[in-house]
Design a protein around this nucleic acid. Structure first.
Lengths: 223, 223
DNA sequence: GTCTTCAATGACTAGAATACGCATAGTTGG
DNA sequence: CCAACTATGCGTATTCTAGTCATTGAAGAC
């Protein structure tokens, strides 16, 4: 899950970025409104977090810009306590949820999970395929009832695969959703991580869930 | 489907090339504008992707050159965030769509599918002939409801045949759209791949779909 | 008209070359 | 120390080459 944070206060921005990264999200941080709008338009983010109080471009304009471009990505807006009217305008302009500053980070994370859940066609709290289950809220992964420990990147990759079960995912697609903009194309990190996942999830099981589509990419499915 | 990418930034170019090849497109990459224009004029591409910021020859000149030669090939232009006016000029000069850098690869692929679909007379999401179906979005192929596994080249060949059902396709036509510029004319690779396809699609069926037109080439049709 | 012959064309196969992905070990940085 | 990433050698599926075999259709013989 890749998230764009548009927030001009460096300190707050970094704090959010860090918190999200600890939750295994791939995060891009942008401190400038106009640039942020461009990024939102150009990259296929899974969620946008927008501070409504921005210097260069009012946050509302970002919302409008994104929605005008027919982009459905869920948007969470951040406002100051006082800006009640702003908040209303924000929701009118297409925001999906809001949070007033200062906020508790747990609160933010919970809202994010809710929005990401709502985004998918169905709304299962837990992602499940065969006997493999992943709970985005707790980041618990189990197979056949047995807990599986994953590192942050492993988890992020698995979540992306599970959210797109049955579809071929090419490497560029994966790198775009599981890594952030610093990703280096000329490496085999993705292959390596798929291998890590295989060791933890498929190794020793008769039913393999992770499949290679030679020349194209990878796919998660029951055979 | 064969695509020419004119992009001077090696890294970006390679990234795009790889993404397209993983989607089974035949891709030529050119880092020089003038040379790229020549290639576009000499080869019957199905799509051109042109970066408007090129060192030797401005991207706009390429557009104009191509359109002056009455070539209808759909063109997708890439621009930097700031070049709004360039973008407008590009569309005026005959581009069919644009994308600003950096862009999401999913987005690029979706646009490409849309442009290639628009090119054909009808616009079906799924290509179908008799009980053979091919879905360009998922690259799934089925006959009589049964899934058929194809390699990348096999798929590319079949897609080309299906997009031109009922028409005789000569070997040069096939090589021009299914292979890239490294294709060696003096081989029988095409025959070999037609044979591979026959084994997977027609073998054991009463209705044959792939037909040989002796002295000319091949044709896909219901008898 | 039809039978035979023959050259041209395509079908098919085996195996070589290549590219791709896997595994594993090594490196870096917090 | 561990997670994230890099680098490399190896096995194998895919792609291609090259050769043999089958089919087609036209020309000539009868």
């Amino acid at each position: 899950m890749r998230i764009l944070v548009i927030e001009d206060e460096t300190k707050v921005g970094c704090f959010i970025k860090r918190a999200l990264e600890e939750e295994s999200y791939a995060v891009d941080l942008c401190e400038d409104g106009a640039k942020g709008l461009q990024m939102a338009l150009n990259t296929n983010y899974d969620l946008l977090i927008v501070d409504l109080m921005l210097p260069s471009l009012p946050g509302l304009e970002i919302l409008k810009g994104v929605r005008q471009a027919r982009i459905q990505t869920p948007i969470l807006i951040l406002t100051a306590q006082s800006q009640v009217d702003q908040r209303v305008k924000g929701l009118d302009a297409g925001a999906d949820d809001y949070l007033t500053k200062p906020f508790a980070i747990d609160e933010l994370l919970a809202r994010i999970r809710a929005l990401l859940r709502r985004g998918s066609t169905e709304s299962p709290g837990v992602l499940q395929i065969d006997d493999l289950a992943l709970n985005p809220a707790t980041r618990d992964v189990t197979r056949g009832g047995q807990r599986i420990d994953l590192t942050s990147k492993e988890y992020a990759l698995l979540e992306y695969l599970m959210r797109h079960t049955g579809r071929v995912l090419t490497r560029p697609m994966i790198s775009e959703h599981v890594w952030n903009q610093d990703f280096d194309t000329f490496t085999n990190v993705i292959d390596v991580y798929v291998n890590y996942l295989r060791n933890k999830i498929d190794r020793g099981r008769s039913k393999k869930l992770i499949h290679t589509i030679r020349g194209s990419g990878y796919m998660l499915k029951v055979d």
